[in-house]
């Protein structure tokens, strides 16, 4: 009878480990519990299993796996939204984007940040996991200055930083894929495992792409991306008020419930409403001649 009860310290340790969601500590705790005769082997196994099941979330995806997910998401979006083969515009987007990404809370991803102009009139942008950022002509046209374009790219970097794309992946796929991965640690994959893993991968790409193209993120994540954008703009030295001017311009071009951002994002008016009042200051923004000139040169007639 006595054996069935956990000693108070051991129980405390187990509880702490479970709350911390740390399976290795949980294992140690359960081993300890068994060693002390406090819990049976079956109980230990079940505690370990439930601790592991709890852990399979988007946060368990390694940056390397995120990289492959991002590549597939971008490749899939590019089949509907073709790339614009414009070297000057793309070079400029990458210089600006890199300067912003460097100052984000997540400057380093597995394969780094890369930016590409899309040959589409629709006002839209997609941040594939890991840092592949796609922006349409239509959205670039909503930007009247480099600062405004910086606001657009910084918002997309905010989505990458927050791993918002990965959050769209259904938990069941992750649990399945990551279970195969734990088997893979011990041996090479069989055909069945590879088939299952590929199916999980395809499903994950579908989940992310569907969210980016059709359903959009939850309002809270858009707000998070706007806040990340403001932080990045401030750190780098662009005027955060450019986010407001860009959104005003976007409001003139986007029809609510229409295509692109009209379908996937809160209305520009709502987004402006959620920004700090200090950004509504209407004083003119600095736009040095060199900055204005290179902006016009690279994307002036995009």
């Amino acid at each position: 009878m006595k054996k069935r009860h956990l000693t108070a310290p051991a129980a405390l340790l187990l509880l702490a480990a479970l709350v911390a969601g740390c399976a290795s500590v949980t294992k140690l705790g359960t081993q300890l519990g068994q060693g002390a005769g406090a819990i049976t082997e079956e109980q230990a196994t079940s505690i370990n299993r439930s601790a592991e099941a709890l852990e399979k979330t988007f946060a368990d995806i390694t940056p390397e796996q995120e990289y492959y997910i991002g590549r597939a998401v971008a490749a899939t979006i590019l089949q509907t939204y073709p790339a614009a083969d414009e070297p000057a515009a793309n070079a400029y987007l990458n210089e600006l984007g890199q300067a912003l990404a460097m100052a984000s809370d997540r400057p380093q991803t597995f394969g780094g940040y890369h930016f590409l102009l899309l040959d589409s009139e629709e006002v839209n942008a997609f941040a594939a996991p890991g840092g592949l950022v796609l922006v349409t002509r239509g959205l670039v046209r909503c930007c009247e200055s480099e600062d405004a374009l910086a606001a657009v790219l910084a918002h997309e970097i905010g989505h990458v930083q927050g791993k918002h794309g990965l959050r769209a992946i259904k938990k069941s796929r992750l649990t399945s894929a990551l279970a195969i991965l734990s088997v893979e640690a011990a041996r090479n994959l069989g055909d069945e495992d590879l088939k299952q893993l590929t199916a999980d991968f395809e499903g994950s790409i579908m989940d992310v792409t569907q969210t980016l193209v059709n359903s959009g993120y939850a309002r809270g994540l858009e707000k998070e991306a706007d806040e990340a954008a403001l932080a990045i703009l401030g750190r780098v030295g662009y005027d955060p008020r450019a986010l407001v001017t860009m959104l005003v311009k976007m409001g003139e071009r986007v029809k609510p419930g229409g295509t692109g951002f009209g379908k996937t994002h809160p209305s520009p008016q709502d987004r402006i409403g959620a920004l700090p009042p200090s950004l509504m200051d209407k004083r003119a923004m600095a736009d040095p001649a060199a900055r204005r000139a290179r902006f016009e040169r690279a994307v002036g007639d995009v």
């Binding site: 492959y68 597939a72 899939t76 890369h114 590879l194 991968f201």
Partner: peptide, 30 residues
């Protein structure tokens, strides 16, 4: 896990996915 081999399987089943541009965009390095 999700690696080159899985990407290869995905490419084989999704021939329209535009990996050529993804590879090209990864060469844009600053």
């Amino acid at each position: 896990g999700f690696n080159e081999q899985v990407e290869g399987e995905y490419k084989a089943q999704n021939a329209e996915a535009d990996y050529a541009w993804v590879d090209r965009m990864e060469t844009f390095v600053v």
